[in-house]
Every structure is written in structure tokens, then in C-alpha cells.
Design a protein around this nucleic acid. Structure first.
Lengths: 115, 115
DNA sequence: TCAATATATGAATAAGTGTTCATATATTAG
DNA sequence: CTAATATATGAACACTTATTCATATATTGA
């Protein structure tokens, strides 16, 4: 079994095993990517690159129903992808940190989008 | 409706609408993130950062069944996240390009993993 | 050609997820 | 306190997706 004539692959597999992140770390990374994987959520995040916004304006910017957007916002909030603060009657959302912005930036350049 | 006392948000929403990527671009970005979102696939990609590997060694590095890994490899291949080449009896896989490596790098630093 | 090995694939099932509808909570204005 | 507005939540359904099992394809060596 295996391609034993390729000692290089065996060594790579060995290194990979040794420094494979923990179960929790893998799950954490996966959660971030999953949050970014649905079109609706991605739209919300791309919109928030323009600055913080309340729910009403997010709905205006990305379309869809208030309820649907709110559900997605919850997922993004729980995944620490965005953060929320209350301002009177409104909840104002914004990107959580620079890592998120960087991921979006990378995805955009990879897809040849404008900034 | 809306927080009309916040002209800033309205302006951000307007900018967001104007430069929202196209349907296809959104779908494309989402597909990449989705490919990276499942623990098993993420493990495969993290392993491939150590260098190209054939299926046998990928299974050895990340665990799971040959069939399961093969299914995930197909998804990654079709999403252009990895590339494959045949070498005799073996198929050798590697990360598709630098963008993928960069995304993994970002996720790792964000999760405080070693390189 | 045949046997052995490496990898891929199809079908089936089980679990996860997005969306919608109705309703609940919280804040402000009167 | 009441009405109005902004946002969140729960349940239900349709849809997608991962995993497993069995089997198929492709390559090598004899």
C-alpha cells in the first residue's frame, strides 16, 4: 500500500501529522469559513466593509427579508465574525476584526472584484 | 423605518449596493469558503501544506476511510482548491495556488496555530 | 492475459442548514 | 402606560451534504 517509492510523500505525511492543529482549532477555523460560505452571509460581510450598519440598512444593501437577515446575523455574531452594539432602537453591526477583513480582501482579489 | 438619524449608515449601504460583487462572483467566493469549511477537507488542505501527497498518505495523515477521503478530494478538485496529477498507480495531490495557501495561513494565525 | 494495488464512484441514509411565517422582546415617543 | 418601531427568535419544511458500503476503473508487474 502507498507509493513507497516516494519517500518524500511519507515524510510530508509525517510532518502533517505532527503539526496538525487540534480538534478544537480545526473546528474553529472551519466555523469561520462556514460562516463565510453562504451567499447571504457573504453579502452581509461584503456590505459591512463599507462601514458599520444597522439591520435596516443591511437589509437595504443586500436584499432579502428582515427575519432571514436577522438569522444570518446571529450566526455571524455567534461565530465572532461580526460584532454588535446597541444604539437606541437600533443594533449596529460591524466586522469583528482585521482577520475577517483580510479574508474578504483575499477572496475578492482572488475573484477579481473591486475593493 | 431605519435609523434615519444615522446618515452615515445610509451612505455605507449605498456604497455597499453600488460595489456589491455579481451573483457569480459571490457564488465563487462562497464556494471556496465552503470547500474550506468542513473539518475533513480542512485537514486535507492543512496536510497538503507540507507538500504534495498521494491518497494513501493523505489518509495516513488525516485519518478516515479511503472512500470518504476520495469523495472530499473530488469536491476540492472540482472547486479548484487542489490539483491532481497521476504518477504511475498513484494520484498525487497538491494545493492549487497561492491564494489557497494564503487563506490557510490566515486561518492558522487567527487560530494561533503553528506554521 | 491475469492478479494485485490505488483510486474513484454510485446509491442510500442520516444529519445539518437556510428560509419562511408567526410571534416575541426591547426601546422610544406620546 | 400604550402605541409604534426595530430587531430577534422558535418551529416547520425543503434542501443540501457527509458518510458508509459496495463496486468500478485504471495502472503495474508477472
Amino acid at each position: 500500500m502507498g507509493c513507497d517509492h516516494e519517500e518524500l510523500h511519507r515524510a510530508a505525511a509525517q510532518r502533517a501529522k505532527e503539526q496538525m492543529p487540534s480538534e478544537e482549532q480545526i473546528a474553529g477555523m472551519g466555523a469561520v469559513f462556514k460562516a463565510l460560505s453562504e451567499p447571504c452571509r457573504l453579502r452581509i460581510l461584503l456590505a459591512l466593509r463599507q462601514g458599520e450598519m444597522c439591520v435596516y440598512h443591511i437589509v437595504e444593501a443586500v436584499g432579502g427579508t428582515q427575519s432571514g437577515i436577522s438569522h444570518q446575523l446571529r450566526i455571524l455574531r455567534e461565530g465572532r465574525i461580526i460584532k454588535a452594539r446597541r444604539d437606541g432602537q437600533n443594533i449596529v453591526y460591524s466586522l469583528a476584526d482585521e482577520h475577517v477583513a483580510a479574508l474578504l480582501e483575499l477572496a475578492c482579489t482572488h475573484s477579481h472584484c473591486q475593493v
